[in-house]
Write a protein that binds this DNA or RNA. Sequence first.
DNA 1: TATGAATGAGGCTTCATTCAT
DNA 2: AATGAATGAAGCCTCATTCAT
Lengths: 194, 194, 194, 194
Amino acid sequence: MPKISTKNKIVAVALDLFHENGINATSVDDILEASATGKSQFYYYFKSKEGLISAVLESFFKFIRLDASPINHEISSWEDLEDFFNFFLTMNKRFDKPRACPLGFIGAELNSSQVELSKQVNEIFDYMKLALKKFFDKAKKNGDFKKNIDTDSLADFCLAILQGGLMTSKIRQDIKPLKASIKHALKYLAIIRS
Amino acid sequence: MPKISTKNKIVAVALDLFHENGINATSVDDILEASATGKSQFYYYFKSKEGLISAVLESFFKFIRLDASPINHEISSWEDLEDFFNFFLTMNKRFDKPRACPLGFIGAELNSSQVELSKQVNEIFDYMKLALKKFFDKAKKNGDFKKNIDTDSLADFCLAILQGGLMTSKIRQDIKPLKASIKHALKYLAIIRS
Amino acid sequence: MPKISTKNKIVAVALDLFHENGINATSVDDILEASATGKSQFYYYFKSKEGLISAVLESFFKFIRLDASPINHEISSWEDLEDFFNFFLTMNKRFDKPRACPLGFIGAELNSSQVELSKQVNEIFDYMKLALKKFFDKAKKNGDFKKNIDTDSLADFCLAILQGGLMTSKIRQDIKPLKASIKHALKYLAIIRS
Amino acid sequence: MPKISTKNKIVAVALDLFHENGINATSVDDILEASATGKSQFYYYFKSKEGLISAVLESFFKFIRLDASPINHEISSWEDLEDFFNFFLTMNKRFDKPRACPLGFIGAELNSSQVELSKQVNEIFDYMKLALKKFFDKAKKNGDFKKNIDTDSLADFCLAILQGGLMTSKIRQDIKPLKASIKHALKYLAIIRS
DNA sequence: TATGAATGAGGCTTCATTCAT
DNA sequence: AATGAATGAAGCCTCATTCAT
């Protein structure tokens, strides 16, 4: 019986609620209600709300690395890169209203005392950035890029445009800004490629 | 002595705290303490916390339109455009830690029931988008752009890269992603200019 | 110009709000808003909220005694008595929803520390009771009643049935209980008259 | 040891305080203090203050129906009817100061937005009214009443005189008006019986 | 008479967390 | 692995009242 464990259910529900409303607007009670779990189950499985956030980030990271998504495996072609960008667009269409990136949203709401969680968020960002950078480095080696292209900052740019596109689309309740962001980012990459 | 009114002090302090920690992590008490105001003064000047947020947005909008900043006046040259982008960089250096865009941060934390506030946020975004679009339209007319350039989506792209750059810089506690974002965005604009 | 003074306006509005919602559910701010008066006007004219209630009772008492209503003058005939009862019915039809007796409602919400106000309320009750009792005494003297009729308790009964009728009609949002109460009370009086 | 549950204790204490001071003059804190309960226990058991009022009404209704009181069982004789009336008198003597009817007091303080609570109050009134009406209908059938007696309005009259008697006794801090009300009401019933 | 600004206590409610079983 | 009950701090908001002008 592939029954989803209580713990996993809590994590899944929490991710969804954090993604939709943010960690600060999501109470432990909200999560328990949505997951039909008792109050003390929560503190049996998690040390605290921060502990849950940590588990959510962990599970999110796992999802990115293991699942059969364009993010999880290496980006090894320009098609892969397009897939990588468009993945965020596809994902977002699954929700009734545009959402920000769960990772970015969680990261943005962390305060300076939540050092461990910040680290976790940054590790995931590092992972995604590295995936992009690796590909850009390879492309550069192959002569796809001019030699003066800074692949590190280019990866930062890619992540930023995705975060910004998702965020503005959420705020404006319209998927267009995300589409525009991706379109122009890909166009930019195509131009500097040659 | 042009004494700052209590109301204005509250708005100023609130903007700062919202900017730093977000609206959900900033309590009314936090604001009152930081502005050295009595509890009920708050509700004398504002109908509710939402009322304050609205006043903060209003004041932010005023600041954008009236102050002597690159956002407030028309963007009428490519230098102006660079100033516009770099303004966000300059601003951010005034804080000890990188911060997200106050407007984007506030907008991102709003929930679907806060319709009026969402409208306000979107009006400000519209204003900034229009400033960019107007310039791009003019440039297109002047032949600076190819005829197939979609100036509307280009303006969306610009706002997104700023939001994303600011946000990732905040999360990563490092100004570099913002710099990278602006650098590449300007490079993109320069390329498609010609 | 027969302009209503600010003070009188406050009193009139307060009576209306007290009548509709009770003294405990009516805040000073409610009254000021409904009377379009400034906050400090209130404390210029009244020592406190209790002071206002006292003024309201006073004005109510005046209204009862001076106005051209069946309560204000002597009850000197059985027709007058019927008018007295029916006056409460007529009054109540002026409101969109049945209301309790303002005097009874105010009195019921007073707490044991509000001694002065209680006294005021009781004086008004005494006044009304006396009006009834006087008539019953006269009637008794005239031989309208049997000698063993206790006119004092009969007056209490009359006031109680009015209070109860008004109150239950308010609660049930239906004028019928008040009508029924008055009908049976008058019938009772008619029977013991003979 | 049949320990009274916290929830029941809160309800019992609340009924007593509501009965004495009304729902609007009784704060949640008052109830918690009087029941020696921690602040958040309250919101563990009740959704809100309104939720508590609802529970209080429910418990009051149960008490009326189940307890060995003259109200709970059928009124099946004129003695029962007298007991019914006198029950309110007996009850009231248990308090140091006369009190209004808890049901009437709660009902009178409800505002027009508290629809659910109003419904609950009216159901209890309906129940009591029906108990009276049933008996009057039977009596009418038995020929105790003249055929033109309106048993429905007679039941309304009975409830009104009790509410009014209790209320005026409370206001006047004297049990006499209640006694007078009951005495005359019973006399009226006796007369129209014949 | 009148004004706007200030005060501080208290009201209702939600929060994250812990305890005893 | 799970339960329901309890805790206390904090959150947002309203109250009656007073002050300086």
